[in-house]
Amino acid sequence: MNILVIAEHDNNELKSSTLNTITAAHKLSADIDVLVAGSELAEVSKQAAAIENIKSVISVDDPIYKNFLAEDFGNLVASMGDQYSYILAPATTFGKNFLPRVAAKLDVQQISDIISIESEDTFKRPIYAGSCIATVKSSDPIKVISVRTTAFDAANVTDAEVSIESKDSQNSMGNATFVKDELAESDRPELTAAEIIVSGGRALGSSENFQIIESLADKLGAAVGASRAAVDAGYVPNDYQVGQTGKIVAPSLYIAVGISGAIQHLAGMKDSKVIVAINKDEDAPIFQVADYGLVGDLFEAIPELTDSI
């Protein structure tokens, strides 16, 4: 049973989501090839080759894959489909974008966002914003799966390197062009990989006020997250959004500040190890999932908290 894992990277660095996906793959079989497709890949391919317990790395180095545009990227992965029983990618915006194209090309029903592997054809996945967990069994010959990264530990990286094979690219469809990326530059840890996250909600009221969240985060060496309401209101950029339709996180410590705890927000953070909620409404639903709750005004509590750690 061969598995193809699609590596997420930025042509310089392998993303940790790849390592979580490898761990999920391991629960199915040890025959794991890792596809690294992109442009000028020497460094990233080497990083991938050092992942523990994989069989080989397949590198497809061509400028047409540089920005991972779904049309060409999806066609490439689909062209390799018949050699594999499983194709796995992380359920990040990278994986979500191209993987359904692969599944459609191979005429299989993708299994999205799995959180556990029950057997070779049976998987668990959250539905309805995590209100319920479905166990589903796939009858497709090739299983195309996106993996919820927080549900699987990161695979180890070793000193040994497996072989790196080069593979030819496919013809470009030429129907999509990359214009630009506006990526957040930050010294803070990445949200999905952070040990501690401080998230702010609508209650912050403005981007200026949001700085008290950022100060606390910086004191803790934490990442900053937000509710949809805070993003919609423009206090923080979209990539801060935690939830059903934003990022899924599971840090050791999640501090929710002025966030009510709508199911759509909980969907993104309720697997955190320790949850702290600070809210002035003692009936806020966020307290139902919090390990430690503090009822109070955030504009007093947060500066005090920042000062006392």
């Binding site: 319920c132 479905a134 166990t135 589903v136 309720k270 390990d291 430690y292 709750g293 908290l305």
Partner: peptide
């Protein structure tokens, strides 16, 4: 292509405590 074998509630989190001060 997928058969749903079961749909259940997720594991509940243990009830936490309220603290009085920072």
């Amino acid at each position: 292509r997928l058969q749903t074998l079961s749909v259940v509630l997720p594991e509940e989190r243990q009830a936490g405590v309220m603290v009085e001060s920072v």
